[in-house]
Simulated scan of single mutants.
Amino acid sequence: MVQVVAVFFVLGKGSSYGLGSVPPRTASLALAGAIVAVFATILLVKHVSVAVGSVVSRYLFPGDPLKKLKSLHKFRDQMWQLAIHVSMTSLEAYILFYEGGETVSWYSNYAHLWVPHPHAQNGLCAQTPQSIQLLYVLQMAIWIDTCFGHRFLEERHKDYFVMYLHHVVTIALVGVSYHYNYTKIGTIVLFVHDASDVPLDLLKIFNYCQLEGPKGLFLVELDYVLTVYTWVHCRFYLFGLLLFRGVICAPREVALAPQAIAHQVVPTTCEPRYTVCMAGYDKARKSDGFGRGHVKGALLGDGSFDVRRSFDEMGWGSHECLPVYWEATALLSTLQLLHYVWFCMLINIILVKLTESTEWHDSARDVYEGESDEEAEADPKPVAAKKAD
Rank of each mutant, 00 (worst) to 15 (best):
G216I: 07
V266Y: 09
F161D: 08
R285P: 00
L354F: 14
K381N: 11
E154M: 07
V266S: 10
A255M: 10
H319T: 04
G291E: 06
S16K: 14
M79E: 00
A6C: 02
D64E: 04
L256H: 15
E369H: 13
T358D: 00
A111H: 01
F218G: 09
G216W: 04
Y229E: 00
V232E: 00
L238W: 14
L322R: 00
L66R: 02
G280F: 05
C209V: 10
T187N: 11
L135Y: 08
F152G: 03
G315H: 08
H150A: 02
G370F: 06
C125D: 01
E221V: 09
V341R: 04
E92I: 12
L96P: 05
C234M: 12
A93N: 08
F290P: 00
H119K: 15
V276G: 12
I132T: 08
C209Q: 09
W80I: 03
H157D: 12
D194L: 02
I132E: 03
A141Q: 03
R309K: 15
V276Y: 10
R252T: 01
T187Y: 01
F239R: 09
D282A: 11
A37M: 11
L256R: 08
D282S: 12
G216E: 05
W342I: 04
G14N: 09
G216Y: 01
T187M: 10
P258E: 00
Y59W: 13
L322V: 13
N348I: 00
D145C: 13
I205Y: 04
A51Q: 03
R156G: 03
A284W: 14
L91R: 03
T128C: 05
A364E: 06
F8T: 08
A93I: 12
Q121A: 09
L332Y: 13
L243T: 13
H319A: 04
D366W: 04
L134T: 15
E221G: 03
K215A: 10
Y107I: 10
D373F: 12
V247M: 15
M88T: 14
A172E: 07
S131M: 08
I185W: 07
K381C: 04
I95D: 00
G370A: 07
E92M: 12
V2Y: 03
F148T: 07
V162E: 15
D194C: 13
W231K: 01
L256Q: 11
A93M: 10
S310D: 13
A111P: 02
A250L: 02
A376K: 15
S57G: 14
H167Y: 08
V307H: 12
C277D: 08
